[in-house]
Amino acid sequence: GGNEFRIAEDTFHHQFCADLDAGEAALMAATQRPVTEQALTDGLTVSEPGWRTKPSWFVHGDRDLNIPAKALRFMAERAGSRGTREIAGASHAVGASQPDAVAAVVLDAVGHVQG
């Protein structure tokens, strides 16, 4: 229930995934899941966020138009990221546009946690 928000389909490509081709962007726009207002405004339901106590790694694009790169850098630093990779030219959809770079960060994290 409650209010839900979506990125308008006519601006989705530019706003969310400018580094993907138009066909993939159109599919993503048509199938996007909305975010609830409650998810964006409610406080935590736990006493402490996981990033305060769990090891973290961070990967993001420097052309993210949903969350400014400056804010992403701050979040990575605040979380004590053990590895931060900022990908030049990547959008908010960095997992779709740069899967190899994202996978490399995940594998780096697994290697550090396991060994």
Rank of each mutant, 00 (worst) to 15 (best):
T31P: 01
V105A: 07
Q114N: 13
V113W: 11
C17K: 07
P68L: 06
D10L: 10
A71H: 15
Q98G: 04
A8K: 09
M28I: 03
T45P: 10
P49N: 09
E48H: 06
S81P: 06
E77V: 11
T84P: 06
V46E: 15
T84H: 03
Q98C: 13
A96C: 03
F74T: 14
A101G: 04
E4G: 07
F5E: 08
A25V: 06
T36Q: 06
T31Q: 14
G95W: 00
G1K: 07
A101Q: 15
E24Q: 10
L40H: 06
G111A: 13
H60P: 01
K70G: 12
A90S: 03
A39G: 04
S81V: 09
A103C: 12
A69I: 09
K70V: 15
L65W: 08
T53V: 14
R78M: 11
V106S: 04
E48G: 09
P34V: 10
L65E: 12
L27H: 07
T45H: 13
D19T: 07
V46G: 07
F5G: 05
L40N: 03
A29C: 06
W57I: 01
H92M: 02
A39L: 10
I7N: 08
V59E: 01
M28R: 14
G43Q: 10
V110Q: 11
A18E: 01
D62V: 00
E37P: 04
L107V: 05
R78Q: 13
V94E: 02
N66L: 15
I67L: 09
A29K: 07
V59Y: 05
A69T: 15
V46Q: 14
A76G: 08
E48Y: 00
T41R: 11
Q98L: 02
H14G: 08
A101H: 11
G61R: 00
L107D: 11
P55E: 13
W51C: 00
